[in-house]
Design a protein around this nucleic acid. Sequence first.
DNA 1: TCGCAACATGTCAATACTTACATGTTGTTT
DNA 2: AAACAACATGTAAGTATTGACATGTTGCGA
Lengths: 187, 187
Amino acid sequence: MRTLKYAILGLINRNSMTGYDLMKVFNLELVNFWYAKHSQIYPELKKLTDDGLITYETVLLGDKLEKKLYSITQEGRKDFLNWLAKQDQLEPTPKDIFRLKTFFIESMTREEMLKQFYYQLDQRKAKLKKLETSMSQHPYSKEISDIASPEYGDYIVLKGAIMREHTYIDWLKGCIKEIESFTKPHF
Amino acid sequence: MRTLKYAILGLINRNSMTGYDLMKVFNLELVNFWYAKHSQIYPELKKLTDDGLITYETVLLGDKLEKKLYSITQEGRKDFLNWLAKQDQLEPTPKDIFRLKTFFIESMTREEMLKQFYYQLDQRKAKLKKLETSMSQHPYSKEISDIASPEYGDYIVLKGAIMREHTYIDWLKGCIKEIESFTKPHF
DNA sequence: TCGCAACATGTCAATACTTACATGTTGTTT
DNA sequence: AAACAACATGTAAGTATTGACATGTTGCGA
């Protein structure tokens, strides 16, 4: 579906940037809903350049280090906006290895079940904490801004990520409670 | 990470089945956390057979139609149980095109924003309704069963899917409310 | 000034997954 | 009897993604 293409176009549309910048944005800001390694980004940038959707100018950093600063073209912007406005069918539900393991829970001992759930819970709690830290530092949450600002998109996807993580944690806690109630000795 | 391998081993461990059966299970029961097309399943079955993790016997359906009924081997079960008990690091957050588009919301008009959010909301509501129907028909939810039954895994992942969908809907509703409050004419 | 982290850009092989191609049988409905 | 859905199994080409290989610069701290 060429989603990486449009993610890159959208980011370059916001600000001109290098492949390295894109890599950082993917693995910091977008990490809650999209990401890519540099080995995928650089070939895609080349392709988009060949297709005339972006252009670059070479910028020097220091004496020798050449970096390519990419900008979007008219054609690129048109393509991006067209993708953005398109109404998509629901994607397939995302894959989730932990849920898959949970499906096979009957093949675990109760000790294994609980060990898995508690480990997952710890990790999810740590992740939620990080997200909440990001939120507390987010410019949009500090002052009521306009929905037409780039920070607004940032802000609502972060809010969504926090809600998602909260729900995962609630689900884990519910499972743990249920399993423990069955684990207790019967008399 | 060979997740398809373990999903298949786990299902065949529950019951012996054919590739076609696996395909149906993937796209009905597991669809909320894993799935695969038959073009991925058949080659994987061949590989697992070659590796000695599963075996098959040919069964006739009618006069001519040969189907392969796969069963797990000792080695296969051992491999599966080992995978199941392994504690995994948190997976990267699943990719989500709608959230990506939401991130770029500033490039949309207010009408486009609302059109996108309402369309997504309709689809999510329909999906939730289906999940809730499945739940109401689920054997485990009808009678309090034991957590050691295969239905229990089924039941808790379904519960998780419903919670996840509820949260997505709540997030969408929150976004819509916020956008609409900004859309109203100022005077 | 040495070492190391971060900056910067690429390729290649392998894995994962999708879409289309390809074929034939069985059961049900018209 | 014809048509069609569901059963049943496979391959091939292409896209998406990962992990490893490969190389060199710049800035900072010890």
